[in-house]
Design a protein around this nucleic acid. Structure first.
Lengths: 108, 108
DNA sequence: TAATTTAGCAACCGTATAGTTGCATATTAA
DNA sequence: TTAATATGCAACTATACGGTTGCTAAATTA
């Protein structure tokens, strides 16, 4: 399908999924699909789809218990986003916008 | 349409757009649409669309000069992503996955 | 002035995405 | 054992998205 970092970016690109992920992070414990659905104005099946996307991106993992499936946030996965950002970090202090400017400034 | 942070996340969620953005960041100077297109196996119109998305996300700005439109990277915009990440950062050191765990660990 | 280059716009195509409804199934409670 | 609950799966809809082709217009060069 697509590489991991793309899955990750696509997962957090959807506002509803960011909300669901956030709800899981601030939850006192793992939440079942139904419990999550109750917090959102959306059908349970809609939530299930989002959870699947988050799971495939590595942002959520699931522990089954009887008929229930408890969803946990895995914020560690966001470190991948952080890694990607790292390269561009050097361009947002100073007034550097491109590597050209960056190298030119080192020449002088 | 959609809020800024969503536009930003969606812009970088596409691998081709990340490549174009990267090319602009490491470029020695601003690149015209045609110059960018030559670096990618895609039609100029395809690139134009991606540039527009990047522009609307604030990651690229354009300076027109005669018939040419020179594209510049604006990596500063990625600070917004960094801000979003900040909240979740505290959950990826230690073994905290959720705020529940986080608060429980403070209780003890 | 004629030819070339840079680019925008519009229409179109195929696929992915967000979300729905309906139904089947397994687990738990009465 | 019957009823209720939690969930998955499949089909469907509408819209967004990545990319293309074709055409037009403005700026530059010969």
């Amino acid at each position: 399908m697509q590489d991991n970092i793309t899955k990750l970016f696509k997962a957090i690109a959807d506002p509803t999924r960011r909300d669901i992920f956030h709800a899981l992070v601030i939850a006192a414990s793992a939440l079942s699909i139904t419990q999550i659905s109750n917090q959102f104005e959306m059908t349970r099946q809609g939530v299930t789809k989002h959870i699947k996307t988050l799971e495939e991106a590595g942002l959520v993992y699931i522990e089954s218990q009887g008929r229930e499936r408890f969803c946990n946030a895995n914020p560690k996965e966001l470190q991948e986003v952080n890694k990607w950002l790292k390269f561009y970090e050097k361009f947002w202090d100073n007034t550097l916008n491109s590597l050209g400017t960056y190298l030119n400034s080192k020449d002088t």
